[in-house]
């Protein structure tokens, strides 16, 4: 089912939201993505992806109380849902499982090309 599979960017977002708890909102999420992965994403794109994840049920959100730094506007704070946690775990298990199955010999071959570290 498509809804349960996480895209790469979606997974990144979920992880960031989880790690920023309880202060995960647009600006903070974006800054964290830039800081930790070194890639940039448009603010609009992040909002769109967050909305999509909320629709899928991986995130839930609430508006907090107003702060003066934002001209008195409230933030929308995101938190992970159980479904979101499960989706992340599912992804992690799948990866671990696949990592464990990689035979030692396959790394040897890669070494030649110089990309192994």
């Amino acid at each position: 089912m498509k809804g349960t599979n996480l895209g790469e960017f979606e997974e990144l977002l979920l992880l960031v939201v989880a790690s920023l708890y309880p202060d995960a909102y647009g600006v903070a999420i974006r800054e964290e993505i830039i800081a930790s992965s070194g890639r940039t994403a448009a603010l609009g794109a992040i909002h769109a992806a967050l909305g999509r994840l909320e629709e899928k049920g991986f995130l839930k959100s609430d508006l907090d109380s107003a702060t003066p730094t934002r001209g008195g506007r409230r933030k929308r704070l995101f938190t992970l849902t159980t479904a979101g946690k499960q989706a992340l775990e599912h992804n992690r298990q799948l990866r671990n499982h696949l990592w464990d199955r990689i035979p030692e010999i396959s790394w040897k071959n890669i070494q030649v090309s110089g990309y192994y570290y």
Binding site: Y25, G26, V27, L43, H47, L63, T69, R70, G71, R73, R74, K75, R76
Partner: peptide, 16 residues
């Protein structure tokens, strides 16, 4: 419905 948080984020960045 979305305008408040977006405006907020934008303004925060602006000040930054």
């Amino acid at each position: 419905l979305l305008a408040e948080e977006i405006e907020g984020d934008l303004e925060e960045y602006y000040l930054l």
